[in-house]
Nucleic acid binder design. Structure first.
Lengths: 347, 347
DNA sequence: TTGTAGGCGTTATCAT
DNA sequence: ATGATAACGCCTACAA
């Protein structure tokens, strides 16, 4: 399919000047007589001329294109990060390639070679706090390609990493429960080889210890972030020990936990108080509405894109790892009083 | 930032041939002596040479790049479509630009000009059954750009449209409820100016009429697809009339509906049976697990990308509007028996 | 202020 | 079988 028929030369012919002069008005460089500028602009409009980014890139060696790599698009957290990143990129004049990158189990090829060939100027890797061994992808990425990762800083120079305050979030959730009088607080983590899981659990432990409590391993559950795993982990916990509160380290698992609790006839929050993590949009409609730790995912994406573009333009980020705050959002599942009735908006 | 230092000429020099010959082996065109081919390949490997897609595009006028435009990334349905489309595109050697396109209320510029400048070969518009007036975007798109839309066929030639069987889905949901003995069945639609809403409601009406029932306007609610709107519409319905079943036209609104029902003390499914639409992943963890109409969103994305690429390559799609099936998934909220206990997997 | 080369990395079309 | 030459659309010098 051919398109992009109109070139700078056509415009020049139409305006009766050399194509060089057209280039000048396009880039607002050098002096151009006001009169000819107007004439050229008229020609541009008439012909609906649009400069070819391709040709420009070839000579300038700049594409103004970012690559966004993610493992799972349809995960809300990832999607929001990407959404934020794309928006910020667009504001700064960048376009974004996306790809559900990661090599499949069948050895499906990585996308990054394609990115490289298309001269992507930088890469944003949106794996949500994955573990080191899942980052074999780094080997495939050119050493000098500007890179921003989410939640995990690889041992590479010149890579910026952004994330959220996982430890603080975990601590806040647990402290809240402690403050409500709970002493046997169970927790369900994501896969423990992931940094986010480790950090959130560390926050949990910190809060307990600050109150003089020990971490009881019987109260420690683990899932894989899915609702099903939250359901399972909760049933195991229930079968194994007693507890009056449960801190689930993401909202999807919390949804499964609530279901397990319901099935076992444990009323929430009266018999078991529950706190989640993420603050996904449907959280106010959980049964009961979920108290949870908010993650500013959209802002995380914006920040990541900003840092990446800065990196591309030779402005290394000041901090290696910037972490965004994770405030607690109190709803009903924790049993705290404060709750304003039916929520009315949601994105 | 400069990169992509190694060019075809470097390879040629290294292999001691003209860069022309290198091009030949790269494209497997023309005859090349086996011996020199091997030598050149060695040079390519040694130098880690990767051809520049930019330069290729300039001469070939092909970019192998698609544009994916969406209104809302973080909506699960959209995200899945994009995920499917990107995957299929990649399989066929295409890269995908994404953008949360639509012009913002502040008049923020459309992304499509940027797409155009970057020589995007085709556009996939992932608006989920939006209404005609939301498609002013079409005016901004070059007439001859291959286009695929989801759920809505604009009055343009050469545009392929894919969607799901909304009418049938609505009919199936309603029939199911009728079969369970319900006669006063309320429904909550999305915005009625959207085709998807109209179609699902038409299916609802068809099912009723086939059973000899009239559509009672008191039973007709409308929302905006959000949980909050589902909650509100349900409360209005409850205040206005009596019904024993409720067909909510997407799962997010259904979540709000369930909450409203809970708050009003109406037990689901005993007092009110509920059926949703979409089959989002969390649906098995609703309280109670939601019976809903499944939408094959990922497949929709794959299909869309396939059609788009065919269009680009001059193979117009056979049908104007391909619709994928929407089977009913029975869980607990409708009160039908069949339900296998705790779900164990989920994406 | 405006026009004339030269080149960005590649492919296509001729020669050789 | 291989090499030279001309595009592709544009920008950066440099000259006029």
């Amino acid at each position: 399919m051919k398109r992009q028929r109109v070139t700078i030369k056509d415009v020049a012919a139409q305006a009766g000047v050399s194509y060089q002069t057209v280039s000048r008005v396009l880039n607002a460089k050098g002096e151009v007589a006001e009169e000819t500028r107007v004439r050229i602009q008229a020609a541009i409009d008439a012909l609906e001329y649009r400069p070819s980014a391709i040709a420009r890139s070839l000579v300038s060696q700049r594409t103004h294109v970012l690559g966004l790599l993610t493992a799972d698009f349809s995960d809300y957290t990832h999607a929001r990060i990407i959404e934020g990143a794309e928006m910020e990129a667009r504001r700064r004049g960048y376009l974004a390639f996306v790809s559900g990158g990661e090599r499949g189990p069948d050895g499906e090829p990585l996308t990054s070679p394609l990115f490289t060939q298309h001269q992507t100027e930088g890469l944003l890797i949106v794996y949500h706090g994955a573990s080191r061994d899942q980052y074999t992808i780094f080997e495939q990425i050119p050493r000098d390609l500007p890179l921003v990762t989410i939640g995990y800083a690889p041992g590479r120079p010149g890579v910026a990493t952004v994330g959220v305050q996982n430890v603080e979030g975990g601590r806040r959730a647990t402290e809240h429960l402690l403050r409500l009088g709970h002493r046997r607080i169970a927790t369900i983590s994501g896969p423990m080889q992931m940094y986010a899981s480790q950090e959130r659990r560390r926050g949990y432990a910190k809060a307990l210890q600050a109150t003089g409590l020990d971490v009881d391993s019987a109260l420690l559950g683990e899932g894989d972030w899915s609702s099903a795993s939250g359901y399972r982990a909760t049933r195991e916990l229930l079968a194994r020990t007693e507890f009056t509160a449960l801190f689930v380290q993401n909202d999807r698992m919390a949804m499964g936990a609530l279901q397990a609790l319901r099935e076992q006839g444990r009323r929430v929050p009266d018999e078991v108080a529950v706190v989640g993590f993420d603050d996904i949009p449907s959280t106010p409609y959980f049964d009961p509405p979920l108290t949870t730790v908010h993650q500013p995912t959209y802002e995380l994406g914006e920040l990541a894109a900003r840092l990446l573009i800065d990196l591309i333009n030779g402005q290394p980020s000041s901090a290696d790892l910037t972490r965004l705050p994770t405030p607690l959002v109190v709803r009903r599942s924790c049993g705290a009083e404060a709750y304003r009735p039916p929520p009315s908006s949601e994105r």
